[in-house]
Design a protein around this nucleic acid. Structure first.
Lengths: 222, 222, 222, 222
DNA sequence: TATGAATGAGTGTTCATTCAT
DNA sequence: AATGAATGAACACTCATTCAT
C-alpha cells in the first residue's frame, strides 16, 4: 500500500508518525481541558492511536504533557528568533516583536492554555527541561540587545529591564486572550470580533512604544 | 461550654457558619487545583464539614464553584469602589488604582487562579450572574470617569478607551503573578522576591503613566 | 386562625393529622418507586411534614412501609366484606366479586405496586402482621361459602378450591394491570383505553363464569 | 495452563466470556433486587469481573438492565416458537402452551421479577427494542393461528381475542408465582410445595380449557 | 410536637495505567 | 509495532438516620 499523506488513519508500523499524531492530539486535548481535565482516552482517540502507544512512547500522561510543553516553548522561541530584529531599526523591531507576539497567541491559542496549566502545577514539568532554559536565554538576549541598540541610537529610554519588558509585551496580549471569556462578560463586549482584535493590537503597540521610546521620539498625537 | 471563637471546629447547628466555612475552604481548594482538580472530599475536610452539607447548601460542585467565583468578583469590585478615586488628582488616582490592583492580586492569589479556571471553562459559571454584570458596570464606569476627569484637567491623553486601560492595568500585574512559576524558569529569576515585586510594581506604574498621561505632564527622567 | 380544612399545610401540633399525611404520602411514594426506590425525603416533602416526624411516628422506612402495606390490605379486605355477596344469587355474587376486584385494582393502582414490592422482599414486612392474617381468613371464608352455596343450588361446579379461585380472580385482573406497560409493547395495543378496560373486564367475567358455573347453567352463545 | 472449563474464574482476555458472565450475573442480581435495588458492585463480584468492564461493555447500569431484559424476552419467545403447536390437535396444542408457560415461569423465576421491575419503570427500557417488538408479533401470531385452527375444526369457541387469551394464560401462572410470598400468608398455605404446584397447573389448564373450548367438546366431569 | 442541621456508609461512574497477545 | 482486555483507586453525589434546639 502506497503512502497516503491525506489519510489520518494510522499508517501501520510507522513509529514516528504515531508519535507525532499523539503529540498533536495531546496538545489539543491538554489545551482544551488542562492537564487534570485531559483524558488519555480522548488523546488516543484523537490521535487514532492505541492508548497503549501513549505509554509506550511517552511513559505517562504527565510525561506526555511535558513533551507537549517543551515542543510549545520550542516553537514560539524558534519563531521569535526568526524575526530578524537586528535587520530593522529599533522602533520598527520593537513593533515587529509586539505584532509577532500578539499574532502568535492568536494563531496558537493552545500555547496560552498550556502555560496556564503548567503554572497551576507550579511549573513542575518545565523545571527540569534544559532545552527550555537554553532557548529562553536566547530569547532574553534578543530583547536585551534590541534595547541596547535602541538606547545607543538615542531612540529608546535607557535603563529599561529587558525581562520586565518581555513580561509586559507578553502580558498585554496574553491576558486579553486568556481571559476573553470572563472579559466578554465583565466588559460587555465581544473581545474576539475582528475589529476588537485590531484595536487591541494597536493599543498594545501604543503602550509598548510609550514605555520604551524616548518621549520626543514618539509620533505626535493628532 | 462557652463560645470558642478560636476553634475551627464546626460550631454545631449553625447553618450560616457552616456555609461560610465551606465557601472559604472551596475558595482555597479551587484556587489550588482548579475546578476539575478540586476534590469535594478535600473541601469538606478543609471546612470541617460533612460532605453532604456541600450538596445540601450548594447543590453541586459546579454550583459551589459559581458561588465562590461570584464572591471573589464581588470582593475585588467592592474594594475598588472603596478606593475613592474621585477624591484624588487624576494621576494620583491612577497610581492608586494601579497599586491597589497589584496589591489585591498579591494578597488574594486565589482570585487569579479562580479566574483562570473559569476561563478554561469558557466563563460558563459566571455567564448567568447578574450580580457580576452589575458590579462590572460600576467598575468600568469608575475608570471612565477618571479618564474623563484627567482629560478635562489636561493631564491625561484624550481618546483612551477605558476598557483597554482596565485590561492593561490588570494584565501587567496578573500575567506576572499567574505565570510566576514558568517565568522563574524562563527568566532565571526569583520573581517573587520582595525586591522583584517592588520593581515590578514600579515598572507597571511607569507603564501606565506613560500610557495615560500627556508626555509633557510626566516627571522628567533623571 | 380558624381551622382551614382546605389547606394542605400542616396543622401545627396535630399528631393524628401528621401521621395520616405521612401515611398517604408514603403510599404514593412506595407505589411509584417501590420500597428500595422510595425516598424518605420525598415522603416527608409530599406529606409536608418534617422528616424527623417519620422516624418519630414510624421508627424507620421499613416500618413505615409495613404500616402502609397493612393499611392497604385492610382497605381492600374491608371493602370486599362490604360487598354483601350473601344477599345475591351465587352467579350474580361471583360477578359482583369479579367486578369489584377489577374495579378496586383500577381505582387503587398503588395496591398492586405495593404488593409487588412486598413480594420482591419475600413478604418480610407482612409476615408478622396478625391483622392481615385475620382479615385474610375472612376473605377466604367468604369465597368458600359462596362456592358452597352455588354448588348447593346446582349452579356451580363442585370440587372447586376457593383458594385457587381467589387467586385466579385476582390474577386475571392484576396481571393485566401491573404489566400494562410491557403489555402495551408486546401486544402493540393501548391496554388502558376505556374500551380496552371494558373488554378486559368482560373477558375476565367470562373466564370466571366458565370456570365456576356448570356448563349447562351458562348463557348460550349466540 | 490448560483450559479449565469448570472454573468460574475469568478466562483471561476473553471478551465474549466476560460479557456473558456479566449478563448472567446481572440477570440474577436484577431479579433478586430489581433495577433500583441491584448493585453494580454485586454484579461485578458475581461475574468475577472488574466493575469497569460493565461500563466498558454495557455503558451503564440501565443499559445493562436493558440487555438483560432483551435477552430474557428473546429466550422465552424463542422457546415458545419451538413448541411446534402446529403439529398438534388444537386442544392438545393449547394444553402444551399452558404447560410450557407455567414450566417456563417455574424454571426461570428471574423472568417474572425482571418484567415486574420493568413495569415499575413503565417499560422505559423495553420501549425502544425493535427485537422485542418483532418477536412479540410472532408470539401473538402463534396463538392467533392456533385459535383459528381450533375454531375451524369445531373445537374452540369462535370470537376469542388471542391477545386476551395470551394475557390470561400468562396471568394465571405469573400471578401465582410472583405473589407466592404474600400469597402464602394470605392463604396460609405453602404455595410452592410440589403438590401445590401440580394442583395449580391442573387448575390453570382447566381454566383455559373451559375458556377456550366449546362446552360440548370438554371432557365430562366424573 | 416539631424542625433543620449534621453524618457515615454507600452509589453509580470514571480514570490512568498494566497485562496478554 | 500495535491492540483490546482488564484493573483498582478514586470521584461526585445520595441516602437513611440521628442530633440539638
Amino acid at each position: 500500500m502506497p503512502d497516503d499523506p491525506e489519510s489520518t488513519k494510522p499508517r501501520t508500523r510507522d513509529a514516528g508518525a504515531t508519535q507525532a499524531r499523539i503529540l498533536a492530539a495531546a496538545k489539543i486535548e491538554f489545551a482544551e481541558a488542562g492537564l487534570g481535565g485531559a483524558r488519555v482516552d480522548a488523546i488516543a482517540a484523537r490521535a487514532k492511536a492505541n492508548k497503549r502507544m501513549i505509554y509506550h512512547y511517552f511513559g505517562s500522561k504527565e510525561a506526555l504533557f511535558q513533551h507537549v510543553l517543551e515542543a510549545a516553548y520550542l516553537d514560539i522561541r524558534t519563531a521569535e528568533q526568526a524575526l530578524d530584529l537586528d535587520g530593522l531599526p529599533p522602533a520598527a523591531a520593537l513593533e515587529r516583536l509586539a505584532r509577532f507576539t500578539w499574532g502568535y497567541y492568536l494563531k496558537n491559542p493552545e500555547f496560552i492554555t498550556l502555560v496556564n496549566s503548567e503554572n497551576l502545577h507550579r511549573a513542575r514539568h518545565v523545571e527540569g527541561s534544559e532545552v527550555i532554559r537554553a532557548i529562553s536565554r536566547k530569547f532574553v538576549a534578543m530583547t536585551e540587545s534590541l534595547l541596547a541598540r535602541g538606547v545607543a541610537e538615542g531612540v529608546f529610554r535607557p535603563g529599561l529591564d529587558p525581562v520586565q519588558l518581555n513580561i509586559t509585551i507578553a502580558a498585554i496580549g496574553y491576558y486579553y486572550l486568556t481571559n476573553r471569556f470572563t472579559g466578554a462578560i465583565v466588559f460587555e463586549r465581544d473581545l474576539m470580533a475582528p475589529q476588537a482584535l485590531e484595536a487591541r493590537l494597536a493599543f498594545n503597540i501604543e503602550t509598548e512604544m510609550r514605555l520604551v521610546c524616548r518621549p520626543d521620539m514618539l509620533p505626535q498625537d493628532p
